[in-house]
């Protein structure tokens, strides 16, 4: 055997070994104990580590936008809980500015509705919106499929993971969902205390905050997700420039005017600015917003009208202290969710 044959056999052997090992890597998604069953249909997109890797690469790749300048991660940064902190509302290609504050991404397998107006009904379909929206990536799907097909890296990756030579939108969105499904946040101080882990205990102030949270906030921001699939008015008046009527835009029903998603409070400390249009930049001012509301406003959610949030200055600090226990640094700095390219 000459040296070149030996090197080729070694290369082949290592390649097969690497492939076998990768096949054995479990997908990062898991079912936390005590949590309900996910709503996501895994049968239609079985978990697969290689598809997760492909989805992660696509999530961080500006190839998805018309001028290749904006990626999903441009508005969903990991260290800010996959939310957007640069501007009040998200920005797209060529400096275009959208109407909405990009929400954080976590525990998406358990959501039934997506976006601030609930206009998207499943996680697979969600990615199509920012990709095609004129103020975000502004990329036509047929052009994007052509671009991915022409990319040696992605055409090989889709061939390897989905067995296709003809990349279609459903391949793309399923790969992205494989990544976003993995974004599970359930290791905050709150979670550790709930699980009774050694050394985890609330401070007195956090305990007081938890009681206030349960009294005033949890009917909408329901644990364990600290969110809900309901659409509510929290009394924010309409922004006269954005003219965003929220849920009514989707349903056409006037009763849905100015109703918006109840977002997750997990990692809320890091996912500023707040509200659907990012109009409040500090968490303490979000709490103050509720204490200053006009509770005679008939458009307010029934939960708020029935139980006005009247908090003293100290109670506001207690509640803020509790909300910070929802920060999950394991999630915010998880190496598996960081920028990566496909090889």
């Amino acid at each position: 055997m000459n040296s070149s044959s030996f090197l080729f056999i070694c290369f082949l052997g290592f390649s097969i070994l690497a492939f076998t090992l990768k096949k054995g890597i479990p997908h990062p998604f898991y079912q936390p104990k005590e949590w309900p069953k996910p709503t996501y249909n895994f049968k239609g997109n079985p978990l697969d580590y290689e598809k997760f890797e492909l989805g992660r690469a696509l999530f961080y790749d500006p190839i998805l936008s018309l001028d290749s300048s904006i990626s999903c991660a441009s508005c969903h940064l990991q260290f800010t809980a996959f939310a957007h902190v640069d501007h009040k509302t998200s920005h797209g290609i060529e400096g275009r500015i959208g109407k909405r504050n990009a929400p954080g991404l976590a525990n998406l397998a358990w959501r039934k509705l997506f976006h601030w107006d609930g206009g998207v009904l499943n996680l697979n379909a969600q990615a199509i919106n920012p990709i095609t929206h004129v103020d975000e990536m502004d990329m036509a799907l047929d052009s994007l499929m052509y671009r991915l097909d022409r990319s040696p890296i992605y055409s090989a990756a889709f061939k390897r993971t989905f067995g296709t030579d003809d990349i279609r939108p459903f391949h793309l969105v399923k790969a992205l969902a494989q990544f976003t499904l993995a974004l599970i946040s359930e290791n905050s101080k709150y979670d550790q205390v709930q699980r009774g882990e050694d050394g985890s205990e609330f401070t007195d102030q956090e305990k007081k905050g938890l009681i206030l949270f349960n009294n005033f906030c949890s009917s909408c921001h329901k644990p364990p997700f600290f969110a809900s699939d309901d659409y509510k008015s929290n009394g924010l008046p309409i922004d006269p420039e954005l003219l965003d009527f929220g849920r009514m835009t989707i349903t056409g029903n006037k009763r849905d005017s100015l109703l918006f998603m109840v977002p997750t409070l997990r990692n809320i400390e890091y996912s500023f600015p707040y509200m659907h249009d990012g109009r409040i930049s500090k968490l303490k001012d979000v709490i103050k917003h509720y204490t200053l509301l006009d509770y005679s406003n008939p458009l307010l959610s029934k939960e708020l009208r029935k139980n006005p949030v009247r908090l003293s200055e100290n109670e506001q600090k207690d509640l803020l202290s509790f909300l910070k226990t929802l920060t999950d640094k394991t999630f915010l700095f998880d190496e598996r969710f960081k920028y990566a390219i496909i090889k």
């Binding site: 239609g44 009904l121 996680l123 697979n124 379909a125 939108p169 459903f170 989707i250």
Partner: peptide, 24 residues
């Protein structure tokens, strides 16, 4: 069918019948 999230074959958004802003 509107909310199934299928997106394959007859459901393919490339057919020009998919409403992204309002899943359906």
């Amino acid at each position: 069918k509107n909310v199934s999230g299928e997106l394959e074959n007859a459901y393919d958004p490339l057919l020009g019948m998919y409403w992204a802003w309002n899943t359906g």
